[in-house]
Write a protein that binds this DNA or RNA. Structure first.
Length: 420
RNA sequence: GUGGGUAUAGCUCAGUGGCAGAGCGCCGGACUGUGGCUCCGGAAGUCGCGGGUUCGAACCCCGUUACCCACCCCA
């Protein structure tokens, strides 16, 4: 056997229905909020993420599936969606081509990480982005959309966390304030935190080591170091969220791992899905479009992990509700006739199955039962001679003979009746 | 990259040195043209892989791989 690649998974019948539900619910919702779908390639230039996601991030430093192709280009499988969507926005001048540049994407992402619950090497995200609107009302609208998505999927125990990480004007001062407040205490933090202090001090807030918490609790908060413009913006976002009645918590410890975030950041956490409990995360990235060579346009969006949404969704009924028809045949002449009937049923828009190998009528009926067939259409020598089909109601047990010419319409009526 | 756990039939698992097992599922029969319930029978295994100890290893030892969980990171 040749097994699947580590950290990748087949999504099989029984589970795929949950994925289809996520897709259907989110597409419907995104379109209600005015978004249009965009599909971008899975491979991109490595440079796009080095510049976009950020050279200092773990994603770029050690998690990308990057390689040199036969033409000598540095290529990578995309580790996240936002830089690709920014690239598409710039490359196709979407701000002029679209009446309103609000786009969404659904697809696989790749990161070379150690797999665990809710974390895979090929995983799937749905991602939305809005370009060119700096008004805080849009921040709140995007958060509202995220919250609505989680709600429509029936995910209970979800928690919305919001923060502001400032902008290039005020964030450096906050970083310095952090390091100054830490002072000598840096040496008493865990090894990871000491490393973070050098690379990205804000990430110290992510630490879960119990011994570090007293020190971290004493550190300054980013919201207290915002410039006037960022402070006003965040206050307006909070006002809108309050107006929408969305329950949220402001956490100064919400610092996201991607370099491009500015001002508003948010996450939705789910309970009971393991340690990887962030099912959705996003924020504003006002400098990214320009950073990637486009016009100076702001942006905001979020990404949700489909695997994690599916984990967090309540267990639906396992029954998919399909009640097909089953054609059973006895003898070679009847089999020929049954094949034609099978095709006619399908042409008429009905789901129909048949046992292709010449098994006993008993095992054919067994198969019909397993398929949860609503009706079995039985064809034997008797039926053939009389020009009829025996139609057995698998639920009630009754059986009636219907003429071959009328049986397709008869079945269509039966199935339509059963769906009421 | 680090740590812990696990690996036996399609699935879930029992078996701790002496014949490879159960439940569910699958196939067939009881019922020769009728499913579900019941009963009977059957098929199905590289006991993850490699080495070692032993008269004898699914079981003990060493190594290795994969999976799961956690750290890290993040959706």
């Amino acid at each position: 056997m040749i097994p699947a690649i580590r950290g990748t998974h087949d999504i099989l019948p029984g589970e795929v229905e949950r994925w289809q539900r996520v897709e259907a619910v989110s597409r419907r919702l995104f379109e209600r909020y005015g978004y249009a779908e965009v599909r971008t390639p899975i491979i991109e230039r490595e440079e796009l993420f080095a510049k976009g996601t950020g050279e200092t991030t773990d994603i770029v430093q050690k998690e990308m599936y990057a390689f040199t192709d036969k033409g000598g280009e540095r290529i990578t499988l995309r580790p996240e969606a936002t830089p690709s969507l920014v690239r598409a926005f710039v490359e196709h001048s979407l701000e002029q081509a679209m009446a309103s540049p609000k786009i969404y994407l659904f697809g696989p992402m790749f990161r070379y990480e150690r797999p665990q619950k809710g974390r895979y090497r090929q995983f799937h995200q749905l991602d939305v982005e809005v370009f060119g609107v700096s008004d805080p009302a849009v921040d709140a609208e995007v958060v509202d959309l995220a919250w609505a998505l989680v709600g429509e999927l029936g995910i209970a125990n979800a928690e919305l966390v919001v923060n502001s990480v400032g902008c290039p004007a005020c964030r450096p001062a906050f970083g310095e304030a952090l390091l100054k407040a830490l002072g000598e205490d840096v040496t008493r933090l865990c090894g990871d935190c000491q490393r973070r202090a050098g690379v990205n001090p804000l990430r110290i807030f992510d630490c879960k080591v119990p011994q570090d918490q007293p020190i971290i609790d004493g550190l300054p908060h980013s919201v207290d170091y915002l410039c006037d413009a960022c402070r006003d913006h965040f206050a307006a976002v909070e006002r809108h969220l309050g107006m929408y009645g969305i329950p949220y918590r402001v956490s100064h410890r919400l610092v996201r791992g991607l370099d491009y975030y500015t001002r508003t950041t948010f996450e939705i956490l789910a309970g009971n899905i393991g340690a990887q409990n962030a099912i959705l995360g996003g924020g504003r990235y006002d400098g990214l479009v320009k950073q990637l060579g486009g016009p100076d346009r702001v942006g905001i969006g979020f990404a949700a992990g489909i695997e994690r949404l599916v984990l967090a969704m309540p267990d639906g009924a396992r029954d998919d509700g399909r009640r097909p028809l089953f054609v059973a045949a006895m003898g070679e002449p009847a089999r020929e006739s049954a094949l034609a009937l099978l095709r006619d049923l399908r042409r008429a828009g009905l789901e129909a199955h048949m046992e292709y190998e010449g098994r006993s009528i008993k095992s054919q009926m067994k198969r019909a039962d397993r398929l949860k067939a609503a009706f079995a259409l039985i064809l034997g020598d008797d039926e053939l001679a009389a020009g009829v089909v025996s139609v057995k109601d698998m639920t009630k047990g009754g059986q009636a003979r219907v003429s071959r010419d009328a049986v397709v319409n008869h079945c269509r009526a039966l199935v339509a009746g059963g769906q009421e």
